[in-house]
């Protein structure tokens, strides 16, 4: 039996995976020092300002934190003077902080799982966190130059972060968030997306790949089928969070070999108040049947292992294990993977 990591590599290259990759089993998400300086919010925390000055709230019972954009809390009060408002936080960390993170990397079993640097939010998300969503989307049309400059500034910061991560932590995978759409469509046209985001991401992902990272996984739990060619050009190996609205089986036929797709299990279908194992298993069976085990990883759409309702993520994991036993005779998947990580 292949280890979870070997199996994921076979899946991504269209080789000989010996089972379905089971959600995040082959991806150990690991932190970098900035995440301790500007920590991710925990459920129940309200109105917490991060290192960029963005205020967020994480109500209990929702999948993640939200920026709070009452007029007084919007960071960029005037897009033409964004430099007066946006101040990139320092990325100079002590060796001790890097060592603490490196210890987490060293503790992960690199035979069984990728050591994946977790980076969020991405460039597009950061623009609307700083400006507020409606403002930001309007600025992409009305203040093109300012948005290009703002994205360039954010890109330079991300590249400095990448330099620190690669030189101190040596990940072999990057897991990068940036939500580019809603359930049924992308936030912007392909042309606008490419005009603003293609080159900056080519630069960021190119840096990681030329400094020891083998695979880039990009999270966008949305429709983004029209952006897949751009994703490939950026250097993304796995599009995580792909919702069923993307028509994943068609994407696999068209782009398999250039990119893989991780998702198809939408939270809305399995992660609700009266969830149960039967419903989870039914969805798992359907998506696995539709998409197969090459270039496809059945996975909850959300951007990290876990679910809103406790138990759902593990129920999905067990359903995929059950299917792997039935279809491929895999008896003891736990021996080939690290303990299942639940982040949310």
């Amino acid at each position: 039996m292949l280890t979870a990591k070997q199996n994921m590599i076979e899946c991504m290259k269209g080789g000989h995976p010996d089972r379905f990759v089971n959600q995040y089993e082959a991806i150990q998400l690991l932190f970098h020092p900035f995440m301790f300086v500007s920590p991710l919010l925990q459920p129940g925390m309200e109105n917490v300002k991060n290192a960029w000055g963005v205020t967020s709230t994480f109500p209990k019972g929702v999948p993640g934190a939200f920026p709070v954009h009452t007029p007084d809390k919007i960071v960029v009060q005037d897009i033409e003077k964004w430099r007066d408002y946006v101040h990139a936080p320092s990325l100079d960390f002590s060796q001790e902080m890097w060592d603490q993170c490196k210890a987490m990397y060293d503790a992960a079993d690199g035979e069984k799982a990728f050591k994946a640097a977790f980076v969020a939010p991405g460039l597009f998300e950061q623009t609307h966190h700083l400006c507020e969503m409606v403002n930001a989307l309007t600025y992409y049309i009305e203040y093109e130059d300012e948005m290009h400059d703002l994205i360039k500034y954010l890109t330079e910061w991300e590249l400095k972060l990448a330099e620190g991560i690669c030189s101190h932590l040596h990940p072999d995978m990057l897991f990068h968030h940036d939500d580019w759409g809603g359930h049924d469509s992308t936030f912007m046209s392909v042309n606008m997306f490419n005009e603003f985001l293609l080159e900056p991401y080519k630069e960021i992902y190119g840096y990681y790949k030329s400094h020891g990272v083998d695979y880039v996984v990009h999270h966008s739990d949305s429709y983004a089928a029209t952006l897949v060619p751009s994703m490939i050009e950026m250097g993304i190996d796995v599009y995580q969070g792909c919702m069923e609205t993307n028509r994943v089986p068609e994407l696999i036929k068209k782009y398999g070999g250039q990119i893989s797709f991780m998702g198809s299990i939408e939270n809305a279908e399995v992660d609700f108040e009266d969830w149960n194992d039967e419903k989870c298993e039914a969805v798992v069976r359907r998506v696995c049947e539709e998409s197969g085990n090459k270039y496809f990883i059945p996975c909850i759409a959300q951007g990290g292992p876990g679910s809103v309702y406790p138990g759902v993520y593990m129920s999905l994991t067990k359903a995929i294990d059950k299917l792997n036993k039935e279809k491929f005779g895999i008896e003891d998947p736990d021996s080939a993977r690290m303990p299942i990580q639940i982040m949310f």
Binding site: V134, L137, T138, Y140, I141, S185, F187, M188, S189, M192
Partner: peptide
């Protein structure tokens, strides 16, 4: 119909 996206809709409304 997917010919226009959110930014275009927002500036039209504005």
């Amino acid at each position: 119909n997917g010919e226009l996206f959110v930014p275009e809709m927002l500036v039209a409304a504005k």
